[in-house]
Nucleic acid binder design. Structure first.
Length: 514
RNA sequence: GCCUCCAUAGUUCAAUGGAAAGAAUAGGGGACUUCUAAGCCCUAGAUGUAGGUUCGAUUCCUACUGGAGGCACCA
C-alpha cells in the first residue's frame, strides 16, 4: 500500500541505515502521509532540513503522488492522487486478502497464552490474555506465519496436591483449611462420582485437575478462544526432559551446587530435598519449544504478576544456547473489576471470583471480546461490571456491527443495473476519506505483525465504522444517477468487506441485520 | 528496602520522538423526516509535580507525589 511505497522510494534516496518514518497524517492540510526523513538526515549529517526536503522532493517519483509539500521544520507531506486511490480501491475489491499486500518472512511461531492452572474455573481476569492471544494468533496466521496456539497445563506441582487435599477435606465433611482451594466448585467436585474412587490426595488432585482442564476448554470455546495444543507439564517429567535440560546445564558448567541445592545464577533448579523447581520445568519446556519442536519464535502472553520472571527466563534460554530474541514475552497488566464503586477482589484460593462464563453471560460474547481487545496490554484497566451490563447497547462494538449491517442492507437493496464501474466518479470528501481508510487496513495489519499490538486493529475498526457511517449519512448510495450509484455501491462493498474482515480477525460476529 | 508497570477531558480509553494530543460517554446547540436514528453535523473540555536531553517530549533521562504488582529451596 501507499505507506510502504513511499517508504521504499525514500529509502532508495538516502544513505542506508537512515532511520525515518512515514506515517498517516491526521490533519487534511498535511496530506495523506508525512515523513520526517529530512529532519532525520539533518540530525545525522548536519544538513539544513529544508534543503534536504527540497532535494528529496525533486527526486521522488510522482507515479501515485499528486503533490508533495514541505512544511517547517522539514516535514514532507504527501498527497495521494485520486486516480491512485481508485486503483487501490479496485485492487482491494479484487484481492482483499492480507497476504497480497503485507509481506512477512513466514515463521514457525508458538503462541502460548492463558495457561491458567487447572485448579479452578477460568476467571474473567483470564479473559484479557485469552482474547488478546486468540486475536494475535488470528492476525499472525493471516499474514502468513505458521502459528501454534498452545496452552501449558500445570499438572505436576504442589497446587495439584493442594487441590486434592481441598476436595478430600470437604468430602470428609470438613471445611477447607488455610492454603486450600475454596469456592463452590470444590464442593461440586467433592460430590463428583467420577472422583470417588480416588483415596490419595495426589491422584485425587490429578483426576480433579483433568476434569477442570476439560471444563476450561469448554469455557474457552464459548469465549471463542481456540487452542491446538494442550501441553502437559507432566509429559516433560515422563519423558525425562527435566533431566536432559539439567544435564545440559551441568555440562556447560552453568548449574552450580550450593547449600545442597543446584542453582542457576540466583535461582534454584533442584531443591536440597531433591525436588525440581518450576523454573527448571519451564526451562525444559522452552528447550522443548525451541530445540525439539524447532519454533523460530515463541510468544508468551503472561500476567503482570510474572514480570519478575522475564529476565530469568531469557537468561535461562540463552544458557541453553537459544538466542533470547526468539522469546517474546507480552505482559498483560491486571484488570480491576469494579462493582458499586468498589473493587471486586478475586482469589481463586479463597473461592472469590467471577468466572469467564459468567462474564460472557453478563455482557455478551462480542462485547466482552471487544472490551478486552480495545486496550493496550501494558496499561491496567478498570472494568465496571455495572456499567458493562447497563450500557451494553452503547458498547462501541454495536456501533461497528451496525455499520456493517447497514452496508449489507444497502447491498441487498441494490439491483445490478449496469456493468462496469467508473471509480473516478468518487470524488466527494467522505468518499475519498473512506477509500484511504480502507487501504490503511493493510497498514494496520502490517504494524501488528511487527509489534503484536492487537488493540490497533480494534481502534482502526472503530475508526473505519465512523468514516463509513459519515459517508453513509452524507451521501445517498442508491440514486437516480446509475453510474454514480454503481461506483458508490462498490465503495460500500469494499467498506463492508473490510469491516467483516477486521471483525473476523478479532473473533467478533458481523451480523447482516440488527 | 530493591525492582517492574502505570498516571492524559467530569468518566472510560487512544496517540512507532513529530506539526494544532484523538475518540467514546456525560454536557450545550443543530439538521433531516428519503438505502437501518443503536445514526449524522456543530460546540466546550485533558498530558500528576519539578528539572534535564532534543530543532521538537504524553513518549527518553533524573527526582518527587499517587496507584498496581513483583522481589521464596512457592507454583
Amino acid at each position: 500500500m501507499f505507506r510502504r511505497k513511499i517508504y521504499d522510494e525514500i529509502q532508495k534516496l538516502v544513505p542506508t541505515g537512515t532511520s525515518f518514518s512515514v506515517e498517516v497524517s491526521e490533519i487534511p492540510e498535511r496530506g495523506d502521509y508525512a515523513s520526517n526523513v529530512a529532519l532525520a538526515l539533518a540530525k545525522k549529517e548536519g544538513k539544513n532540513p529544508l534543503e534536504t526536503a527540497e532535494y528529496l522532493k525533486s527526486k521522488l517519483s510522482r507515479e501515485f503522488i499528486e503533490r508533495i509539500d514541505i512544511a517547517s521544520p522539514g516535514f514532507l507531506n504527501f498527497f495521494i492522487a485520486p486516480f491512485a486511490l481508485s486503483i487501490s480501491l479496485q485492487n482491494v475489491l479484487k484481492n482483499p486478502g492480507v497476504k497480497n499486500w503485507v509481506k512477512v518472512e513466514p515463521k514457525k511461531i508458538n503462541l502460548e497464552f492463558v495457561s491458567a492452572n487447572p485448579t479452578g474455573p477460568l476467571t474473567m481476569a483470564n479473559g484479557r490474555g485469552g482474547f488478546y492471544g486468540d486475536a494475535s494468533a488470528n492476525i499472525l496466521s493471516e499474514v502468513g506465519h505458521h502459528v501454534t496456539r498452545e496452552y501449558y497445563v500445570n499438572d505436576a506441582g504442589n497446587q495439584i496436591k493442594s487441590l486434592g487435599l481441598s476436595i478430600w477435606t470437604v468430602r470428609s465433611g470438613g471445611e477447607p483449611k488455610e492454603g486450600h482451594y475454596k469456592g463452590d466448585y470444590i464442593y461440586k467436585l467433592a460430590r463428583d462420582k467420577r472422583l470417588l474412587i480416588y483415596k490419595v490426595a495426589e491422584r485425587l488432585g490429578k483426576a480433579a485437575a483433568d476434569i477442570l482442564r476439560k471444563e476450561i476448554e469448554v469455557s474457552l470455546l464459548k469465549a471463542g478462544i481456540k487452542f491446538n495444543v494442550w501441553f502437559y507439564e507432566s509429559s516433560l517429567h515422563k519423558n525425562k526432559e527435566l533431566d536432559k535440560t539439567l544435564d545440559l546445564l551441568k555440562q556447560k558448567g552453568i548449574a552450580e551446587e550450593k547449600d545442597g541445592a543446584l542453582w542457576f545464577a540466583d535461582h534454584v533448579l533442584v531443591k536440597s530435598n531433591g525436588n525440581y523447581t518450576y523454573f527448571l520445568a519451564d526451562l525444559a519446556y522452552h528447550y522443548d519449544k525451541f530445540i525439539n519442536r524447532k519454533f523460530d519464535l515463541a510468544i508468551n502472553i503472561w500476567g503482570a504478576d510474572h514480570h519478575g520472571y522475564v529476565e530469568r527466563m531469557k537468561k535461562g534460554i540463552e544458557a541453553l544456547g537459544v538466542n533470547q530474541e526468539r522469546l517474546k514475552i507480552i505482559m498483560m497488566q491486571l484488570v480491576r473489576f469494579i462493582s458499586k464503586g468498589q473493587e471486586v477482589k478475586m482469589s481463586k484460593r479463597a473461592g472469590e471470583f467471577v468466572t469467564l462464563d459468567e462474564l460472557i453471560e453478563m455482557v455478551g460474547f462480542d462485547a466482552a471480546r471487544w472490551f478486552f481487545l480495545e486496550r493496550t496490554p501494558n496499561t491496567q484497566m478498570d472494568f465496571d461490571l455495572d456499567l458493562a451490563k447497563e450500557r451494553s447497547k452503547k458498547n462501541p462494538v454495536f456501533y461497528v456491527q451496525y455499520a456493517h449491517a447497514r452496508a449489507c442492507s444497502v447491498a441487498k437493496a441494490s439491483r445490478n443495473w449496469i456493468l462496469g464501474t467508473d471509480f473516478s466518479l468518487l470524488k466527494e470528501k467522505e468518499e475519498l476519506t473512506l477509500i484511504k481508510k480502507i487501504t490503511q487496513f493493510y497498514e494496520t495489519i502490517e504494524d501488528i505483525a511487527n509489534d503484536y499490538f492487537v488493540h490497533r486493529l480494534t481502534n482502526y475498526t472503530y475508526g473505519l465504522a465512523q468514516i463509513y457511517t459519515s459517508f453513509y449519512e452524507n451521501h445517498k448510495i442508491l440514486t437516480e444517477n446509475k453510474k454514480l450509484s454503481r461506483a458508490r455501491l462498490k465503495l460500500n462493498e469494499a467498506a463492508r468487506n473490510t469491516l467483516r474482515y477486521s471483525l473476523g480477525l478479532l473473533g467478533i460476529e458481523s451480523p447482516e441485520k440488527m
